[in-house]
Design a protein around this nucleic acid. Structure first.
Length: 438
DNA sequence: CTTTATGATTCACA
DNA sequence: TGTGAATCATAAAG
């Protein structure tokens, strides 16, 4: 901002010799200066100024006096200046001087690197849907499939509360932003008007105006950045409050649990779905891949810890799988497709803590599996039955013998030791149903 | 309210 | 990097 006193000085002509912008005492020829300024009410330095500081004291006095002048008086002075006969000449001198000094001004600008922080904030706000277009509404199946990243926030579909709050933030952000922009443009026009006004008494290049506008915009963008920053903070807090899955745990849909369990129990020998299998399961269940991974992680450990507890469940899914498998077998018979494997043999995955009887059972199953056969099945059934009755199958048995049989009957057990499951999630009979559904 | 079930996170490990 | 194990935090059941 220009110092008003400088203008005054410039207009007086003598001011040219005072680069400091301090106006000299009014000349006698100046009609506007005819009336001596009223004495300042408050002297900063009472008493006579020390020698050598005489000028400064005077000047100071005048500056102080300006504040006491009425607006009308000032206007009158200004008008007088504009009408002064020497004005055009002085003005041109001023222009000349300005021309010379403008070079030194030029270097000052040129510091406008795209602010990294601002960009970060912008990106985040955009990602959160605060800035930019209205956030994509609820995710259809496409969204679910697309966002299988691992970010647990996909569940936001259910968090209508979260969305409401977010849109509130969004609203506030936009209204504030608008306010700032309005204020900025108002202020800019105000300053431009001022400069235009001033350009009558001093030369102002367009570059200078531009620079001024840039400065103003810079100042306002600093404020905007603060706004963005606090908006980001608000969103972060909101997120942590609403989307922290530990706080808001939602059970999976029945469909999801179904799909996962089917896979798990039909691949009990190796319940480690490949990445593709996980994706497939995620798609079928309408959850994310990382949720699938979590689920399998939890399932494995919990199943292992307490197989007895899962017995019933295992049987249910085993039966289910068996039906499917039977259907498949009935149609295509064994052997044909290498991708219709099978699945699981009984809980063979590193079940070190299981009882001996289980192990025996296990080995029995596996050894006899390849030959196939209904007799094996019945053997197993009875064995299972016995164990079931005798006793406390908690740590002893676990698991879907039925499945084992069926699947072994498919003859892919050997492969199954190493994940047959991994090879073909899609073609797997264990998940046949879901294939049909999709 | 307490207990159980369950999804997610964290950390160590191979 | 994926996994097992422990743990947390919440939903659901009793």
């Amino acid at each position: 901002m220009e110092d008003p006193s400088r203008l005054l000085a410039a207009a007086h002509g003598a001011g040219v010799s005072h680069p400091g912008g301090i106006p000299p005492p009014p000349s006698a020829g100046d009609p506007a200066a005819a009336a001596p300024p009223p004495p300042p009410p408050h002297r900063l330095q009472p008493g006579p100024p020390p020698p050598g500081h005489q000028d400064t004291g005077d000047i100071l006095q005048q500056i102080m006096a300006i504040t006491d002048q009425s607006l009308d008086e000032a206007q009158a002075r200004k008008h007088a200046l504009n009408c002064h006969r020497m004005k055009p000449a002085l003005f041109s001198v001023l222009c000349e001087i300005k021309e010379k000094t403008v070079l030194s001004i030029r270097g000052i600008q040129e510091e406008d690197p795209p602010d990294a922080q601002l960009m970060r904030l912008d990106n985040m706000l955009l990602a959160e849907g605060v800035s930019g277009p209205e956030k994509r509404g609820r995710g259809g199946p496409t969204t679910v499939a697309a966002t299988s990243g691992g970010c647990p926030n996909d569940n936001s579909i259910e968090h209508s509360d979260y969305r409401a709050k977010l849109s509130q933030i969004r609203q506030i952000y936009h209204s504030e932003l608008e306010k700032y922009e309005q204020a900025c443009s108002e202020f800019t026009t105000h300053v431009m008007n001022l400069l235009r006004e001033q350009s009558r008494t001093r030369p102002i290049s367009p570059k200078e105006i531009e620079r001024m506008v840039n400065i103003i915009h810079g100042k306002f963008s600093t404020i905007q950045m603060q706004l963005k920053q606090s908006t980001c903070e608000a969103v972060m807090i909101l997120r942590s409050r609403f989307l922290d899955a530990r706080r808001k745990r939602r059970n999976f849909s029945k469909q999801a649990t179904e799909v996962l369990n089917e896979y798990f129990y039909s691949h009990l020998s190796n319940p480690y779905p490949s990445e593709e299998a996980k994706e497939e399961l995620a798609k079928k269940g309408g959850i994310t891949v990382s949720q699938v991974s979590n689920w399998f992680g939890n399932k494995r450990i919990r199943y292992k810890k307490n197989m007895g507890k899962f017995q019933e469940e295992a049987n249910i899914y085993a039966a289910k799988t068996a039906v499917d498998a039977t259907n498949v077998v009935a149609q295509g018979n064994q052997a044909n497709s290498p991708s219709t494997p099978n699945s699981g043999s009984s809980g063979s995955f590193k079940m070190t803590n299981s009882g001996d009887s289980f192990i025996n059972l296990q080995s029995l199953t596996s050894y006899q599996s390849s030959p196939v056969g209904a007799n094996v099945q019945s053997q197993m059934d009875s064995l299972h039955h016995v164990i079931h009755q005798t006793g406390r199958y908690d740590t002893i048995v676990g698991n879907p013998l039925y499945t084992t049989q069926r699947i072994d009957a498919n003859g892919s057990w050997q492969d199954a030791t190493t994940p047959s499951s991994i090879t073909s999630p899609a073609g797997d009979p264990g998940s046949v149903n879901s294939d049909a559904s999709n």
